[in-house]
Computed example of a mutant assay.
Amino acid sequence: MTIAPDNAQQGASHLYRTMRDFVQSMDDSLPGKFEISKEGIVHDMMSPVKQHELTVLRVRKRLEKVMPEEIVAHTGEPDVEDESEGILRRPDVMVIAEADMEGDGTFDPRTLVAAIEIVSNSNPDNDWADKVRDYPLMGIPIYAIFDPRTATGAVLTDIHTTPDGPRYANRKDFVYGEDVTIGDWTISTDDLPHYQPIGR
């Protein structure tokens, strides 16, 4: 009889629920955004700057111009959650069918067409490393990254199995000014804002 795996699973599940309760209690009382990654709680303490929010807005509007009406580029809540993996994330933009937004609770990550992140000046590794690991674990088929620090980005696709777990097999880099294709839709990256150098 094997007890350890079940106990380990129960322990991991209990730890995740504890972290989830903490994140929910802190969301309205502390500045910044709380998420749960495969490594634990992530707290981006900085409020999003104007360039970040303007990028979110422009990417969302450009996508919604070219997508069919039943697909939306959603910003905001609720979170995307995979309890079995112990991950709770809130992408800057979620490409999802409007019908999959119905009901209560968090979004099922496997209903997302794509997750889009605008890199934070204060915590770029969260977008370029942690979410590159977490999103394929959650089954999100496309992950697009826009980086206002460098005016570059990447679209990651094609989840495949590796010894370290599911990972994206393909990465297509782009620079601002080029068109970028996310799923079935191509948008311009012209006029996306850049972060000002720190200290200016």
Rank of each mutant, 00 (worst) to 15 (best):
V93K: 06
E85D: 02
L30P: 05
T75L: 07
Q196R: 12
H74L: 15
T181W: 07
E53I: 10
S120I: 06
T189M: 06
E102P: 04
S25T: 13
L156S: 07
E85M: 15
E70N: 09
M26Y: 03
D100Y: 09
G165P: 12
P5W: 08
L57T: 14
T162M: 12
P48H: 05
K50S: 15
T106L: 04
P163G: 01
M138L: 03
R200K: 08
L15I: 02
V113T: 15
P31M: 01
G153W: 06
V72H: 05
V93H: 06
A169C: 07
S188A: 04
V155H: 06
E39K: 10
G103C: 04
Q51F: 04
D190M: 03
H194N: 11
H160M: 14
H160F: 12
L57P: 03
E69V: 01
W128Y: 07
S47M: 12
N7G: 03
H43E: 09
H194E: 13
I182G: 00
Q9G: 00
E64W: 05
M101V: 12
K33V: 04
A12G: 05
M45T: 14
V80K: 06
V155Q: 07
H194D: 05
A99L: 11
I87Y: 04
E83R: 05
G86N: 07
D125W: 13
T189Q: 02
K50H: 12
R133F: 15
V42S: 06
P136V: 08
Q24I: 02
V93A: 01
K33I: 09
D134C: 08
D27V: 00
S122I: 03
S29P: 01
I142V: 15
E117Q: 07
Q9N: 09
L54G: 00
I3Y: 11
I140W: 08
L57I: 06
F174E: 10
P193T: 03
Y16R: 00
H14W: 09
M138N: 02
D92W: 08
I182L: 05
L192M: 12
M101E: 15
T106R: 10
D104Q: 09
M46D: 10
D164K: 12
G76D: 09
K38G: 06
E117I: 09
K131W: 09
D130S: 09
V95F: 00
A169F: 03
T18A: 11
R62G: 02
M45I: 11
S47W: 00
P136R: 02
F34R: 03
T55E: 04
R58S: 10
